[in-house]
Amino acid sequence: MEITLLQGIIITIVIMIIVVDRHLEALFIFRPIIVCPIVGAILGDLNTGLLAGGIVELAFAGIAGIGGASVPEALLTSVMTVVFAHITGNDVATSLALAYPFGVLMQFTWTIRNTAFTAFNAPAERYAKEGNVKGLMKLCFYGIVITMIITGILTFLSVYAAQAPLKAFVEAMPDWVINGFQVAGGLLPAVGFAMLLRVTLKGKYVPYLLAGFLFATFIQIDNVLPVAIMGVAFALMEYYRSGEKEPVTIKGGEESGI
């Protein structure tokens, strides 16, 4: 289905507001699980938005730009996953893979922005020397507004202006390419999970990983909540055990590794 100009404008405005939160990381309304249903609702398809929110959130669960690391942006990927599902009728996994390049596009834009924002440092020093707190606030305001504007432009172009060529592009793809994107959509969450494993997995946690994996593989569950409850049980065991008088143990290194 087509995206109307009005829908394009509303999505752009909403994303311009949400990107402020992405920029400041305050309320976490910029996460895919929230952005996708909102975009879906604007397009009159809340259900697709919810389904997309689930899969995109998981794909990005471990992909965090910690310490200014440059990673694909979840925000525009979220928007475009819903947009692709809406305009082409493909499922959300396929749409996620199709939407990824837009996340990379936003990543590049933000890398340029983060570089350009170094220009704020000189006036900031000048204001500081004048004891001018209002001046510093003004710079913050500029930083937010500039981010809103570049994200707004990028969103409008991606969502509305590019929809006809995008649709034509996807429709021109042979079935095996679409199928390939669908396969990729099923694999992409592994990247997020692997990134999380990289920061959390230590040898002593492997049993819990296996337990969670086996539980979800062999027991029919509708959602991951039962696994979480089992995880809470393990966590409590670990918590109380670590509270007991520490026996003489060789301190494990902080290195992750199995």
Binding site: L196, Y208, L209, G212, L214, V227, G231
Partner: peptide, 9 residues
Amino acid sequence: VTILGGLIA
């Protein structure tokens, strides 16, 4: 990590 195991599956 337990949840991650479940999520992977």
